[in-house]
């Protein structure tokens, strides 16, 4: 019984840490123009892991919603942002 409770507790507590998906926020330098920021929407939209993205010109952020069970590494995000002609300031992740 003790073993079952311990196992259940571990699953409940640690479960989210193993879950893929979630929300990633990329802080992007140079993102001042709507017309030009379309490139980010186009290129992130081609990624298999991406469910949706939201661009905030005020906050200079790109919020990326990942599909359940999918991941997108920081390196890949930096690569896409750089490929689009911008620079990454930092990346925040929330599950």
């Amino acid at each position: 019984m003790r073993k079952i409770v311990l196992t259940l507790a571990m699953v409940i507590i640690t479960g989210p840490a193993f879950a893929a998906g979630g929300v990633v926020t990329a802080h992007v330098d140079g993102m001042v123009c709507d017309f030009c920021a379309r490139s980010l929407e186009k290129l992130f939209g081609k990624e298999e892991a991406v469910e949706a993205i939201k661009i905030d010109l005020d906050g200079k952020t790109v919020t990326i919603n990942l599909k359940d069970g999918q991941e997108l590494s920081d390196e890949r995000i930096e690569e896409i942002v750089s490929y689009s002609g911008y620079d990454i300031e930092k990346i925040d992740r929330a599950e």
């Binding site: 330098d29 140079g30 001042v32 123009c33 002609g85």
Partner: peptide, 12 residues
């Protein structure tokens, strides 16, 4: 050719 781009926090 884009020879140089300056990406700043609030400008480009």
């Amino acid at each position: 050719n884009l020879l140089k781009r300056w990406n700043n926090k609030d400008s480009q």
